[in-house]
Design a binder for these strands. Sequence first.
DNA 1: TATGAATGAGTATTCATTCAT
DNA 2: AATGAATGAATACTCATTCAT
Lengths: 199, 199, 199, 199
Amino acid sequence: MRKKGANGQESRARLLIVAASEFARSGYHQTKISSIVSRAGLTQPSFYLYFESKEAIFKELVEKFRTNLKTLIEGSRVEGGIDEDDVSSRLLGVLRELFAFLAKDPDLTQIGFFIGDDSAIVKAEMAAMLEQYLKDEQRDGLLDRECDMRIVAESLVGVIERLTAQQLLTEKRTSEDLACHVVNLFMHGIRKDPVKGFS
Amino acid sequence: MRKKGANGQESRARLLIVAASEFARSGYHQTKISSIVSRAGLTQPSFYLYFESKEAIFKELVEKFRTNLKTLIEGSRVEGGIDEDDVSSRLLGVLRELFAFLAKDPDLTQIGFFIGDDSAIVKAEMAAMLEQYLKDEQRDGLLDRECDMRIVAESLVGVIERLTAQQLLTEKRTSEDLACHVVNLFMHGIRKDPVKGFS
Amino acid sequence: MRKKGANGQESRARLLIVAASEFARSGYHQTKISSIVSRAGLTQPSFYLYFESKEAIFKELVEKFRTNLKTLIEGSRVEGGIDEDDVSSRLLGVLRELFAFLAKDPDLTQIGFFIGDDSAIVKAEMAAMLEQYLKDEQRDGLLDRECDMRIVAESLVGVIERLTAQQLLTEKRTSEDLACHVVNLFMHGIRKDPVKGFS
Amino acid sequence: MRKKGANGQESRARLLIVAASEFARSGYHQTKISSIVSRAGLTQPSFYLYFESKEAIFKELVEKFRTNLKTLIEGSRVEGGIDEDDVSSRLLGVLRELFAFLAKDPDLTQIGFFIGDDSAIVKAEMAAMLEQYLKDEQRDGLLDRECDMRIVAESLVGVIERLTAQQLLTEKRTSEDLACHVVNLFMHGIRKDPVKGFS
DNA sequence: TATGAATGAGTATTCATTCAT
DNA sequence: AATGAATGAATACTCATTCAT
């Protein structure tokens, strides 16, 4: 039987969870230490037992998001893309994983992908990664030679960004669902009568 | 001969311009009244001669953006879409106008489209408008029946959002250029060998 | 007719005076901004209208003391020492001026000579100055060749320091009085039967 | 074999030593309990096992200094002054002992003689003691009748104070050396051609 | 039209100290 | 003898806003 808060790591974890929720809802500046600690059942000085400053806990959350994302990307390079023998399937795999990742911890996604100052960097890295992927497929003759993959990659990031915020985090659509739609859109466009692969 | 700053409307206008620039660069909370007035060559009390509060001037800027946008959209319904007899051309017209609008006053775009709390509403309205347009074309048999135009419209907004922030406001690409690329992407996708109309 | 506090420079001056008094009585860390402003009839934010920080106002006071002292020393080199034709008289002149200076603004003396981190430097400079003066007189054959003027100068500073704190600032003795005693002590010592010049 | 720190008296002693070092270096207010205990290899609650408060441990150190000093003075009355048959030798003995005492435990000297609020009292007592001694010699006709021994004693304390801080604690001079210089200075002054006894 | 002067309300951070184990 | 966890109380500093002129 354990006393309330007798375990420091538990308190630290609670603070992280509550802080993520507060930052996600109100942003960095609006979020006050006092509300974090009160929701975590602690007092202000206790906060400084576990984190150097407000900035420190925020950075830790951002870093957590970025690390998770990096892990995902590195893992998917090896595993995700290779076993599929079809361009669309490969792209679908990539997007499915991305959306699934972004849906897993909404607060963290909000912070790392939308609120944090680093979110611009995160998206730039994501764009660069996608651009590389698209150019590889293009070089293999599997995608349209005429396309400017720079623009396509940026567009893809924009789509992911918006659908995540509007459909995924609001739970209107599943990551599976969104991935399919985006692949179709990007592969065939919306002209009449295209040959469909997924729907 | 007029005393320095003796014209109130001039001071008010200067404050609006400087405030737009500050808000665009630093966001709402980071921007201090003190820096706005000092850049405008006034003192703090003078600010309150023209605006009720910090929030008021910000809202006025946001409102200006929204009004401009509404004007654009209403104007383009009558004029823009009708004279073209080709779907792609019509979409191109719409996007060209949108990007041109977003490029015209970068500070205002930053505020109304990215910073303000209302930017979510603006984008939602834009998505709704585009969805309606796309559904109209779809009903006329000019676009793929299978497409979920809700998702397509949201994606289009995402693309506009990101390309505006990354390419348009940074002056890497022109609005014309971006409009072409987006139309191609959305009309044909990136599959190999699509029939192109614009590039 | 002037409203209370309508003059900014007056408020600033009042803050400086009150702060000097508080710092002198309680030291740097014990002195709170809140007590300074309340004694000056202002509120906390007003303090920051005139001074960057608590450290800044303290430094300004220290600097004021050091500047005053420097002015005194430079002035006395030209004027004070030259017209007297007797070693004792010259030393008396120097000490009289020093004590008079230290007695003039007790709070400032307390801060610059005893409390501030720089007080060590001030005293070291004073010791160096005195050492130079003594060595000059010694070179001219007017003081004992055997004396280590380094030690004498340090001792003199120690004496000034203590007599200032114990006798001068407590108003038990005048600067005139103290200067005489110190000159006698340093010139003749306390042995029986020395030839006296001042008493 | 003894467990690490299992001996309470050892921990207490360690705390005293570390605290003395910290207080001496940084002063009372700058010194934090947290740094004392961490340097002593303990935790904060353990501190309160041995001392009531921060003030308590500081006072204990001050008291230790004062007790040591009192012991010295009482001892020297009996021993130091009597066997010498020369005024200068007796004063030399007193100063030698004082400087030696002040040099023995620099941290403690720093605290008891310079930092603690009581240091003023300590010095006042020292001044009183010296004044008494000087007046005794004066009454016996061994020192100049004209001298105000109050001032001389205060001066002596000032000299001791400064030379201790500048020369003794910085190890530039030995206590023996300083005692000689001070005796010479106070006995003969710095006039040309005095009869010397020590140099 | 403009401003010099002033402030109310708020917020992150620090540190000595204690409780339960 | 020792500690992990927690806190009460205090303080420097910021900023939007107002008053009297």
